[in-house]
Design a protein around this nucleic acid. Structure first.
Lengths: 151, 151
DNA sequence: AAATTTGTAACTTAATAAATTACAATAGAT
DNA sequence: ATCTATTGTAATTTATTAAGTTACAAATTT
């Protein structure tokens, strides 16, 4: 019942590209350093984001750019782009069909889980990449203000 | 990173105990046959459900019983009882603190994920074990009606 | 007392996400 | 045109952990 860090890392990539565009070279290596992973992992995620229409990349050149305005990219878009198992809960598929419970619980839980998943997805759909970027920048500004006071 | 079926299996256990109470011996073996797992896995989950105050068990005797009315047990109660990592999304904790993004994204995503998680949890909290049992029994009745028509 | 069952610890197996290695394809600089 | 840096992707390895297994003490029932 665990979503991989691919989702988090993908949001990270997109936010990084937006914030550091024109400031540092947007190589998979630099992005990987910020995430704390390898450049290949970053390129693999960027490939998926590109296929989902969220990111433009140039083969051979470190010039990735967002394919849409950050206000038009939701966390749910990112989630769908990079998670292949988009289910938050897992149905046990090996239950005994001969049993009243085993024979009906899979369908029953599919419905119950679906409601919960949609509720979560709706929240992700209502949070934009821009919201995330804004929050990151606010937190950074707060951090720097605190730092200055300490000096 | 394998996704846990513990949540599904635990709902299964509780529904089984309610539906088959007085009809078949409620041994961990019988319950395991319905789920398609081993008796030890069942006993381990039952132990957690007992500690969470959802189930009564008797050491040495096959007499488990629900500790509360099924209308008073929510899926979220079960979820909390048997899942140790209750987070639906995973934060990447190894991001680079020196970077504006790496240094602020963990907190930022914690907040965003929390909203989505609460929305899903609220749906789970509003679905009771009784709802699940009712649905299982309705589906079973439909199945049997279809069966009779075919004969 | 014998047979059955629960409760739990310790260990093994299986599944898979993440990391690594390798290399072809492309871009840009000199 | 060649050299260097980079992306894109496949193939493989590693690390993690959920699930399954083994083992056995403790309690219950007959």
């Amino acid at each position: 019942m665990k979503i991989s860090t691919r989702f988090s890392d993908s949001i990270h990539i997109l936010a990084f590209i937006n914030i550091y565009h024109g400031k540092v070279p947007l190589t998979s290596n630099n992005i990987a350093s910020s995430i704390g992973t390898s450049p290949v992992v970053v390129r693999r995620l960027m490939s998926q984001l590109r296929k989902a229409g969220l990111l433009n990349t140039v083969h051979g050149a470190a010039e990735p750019s967002l394919a849409k305005d950050p206000t038009a990219i939701s966390l749910y878009d990112v989630f769908l782009a990079v998670e292949d198992n988009t289910h938050l809960f897992t149905i046990d598929h090996k239950t005994n069909p001969e049993c009243i419970v085993g024979g009906n619980i899979q369908e029953t839980l599919t419905e119950a889980y679906h409601q919960a998943e949609v509720a979560a997805e709706a929240k992700l759909a209502r949070t934009s990449l821009q919201d995330i970027i804004d929050t990151i920048l606010v937190k950074q500004a707060q951090k720097e203000a605190r730092q200055r006071k300490e000096d």
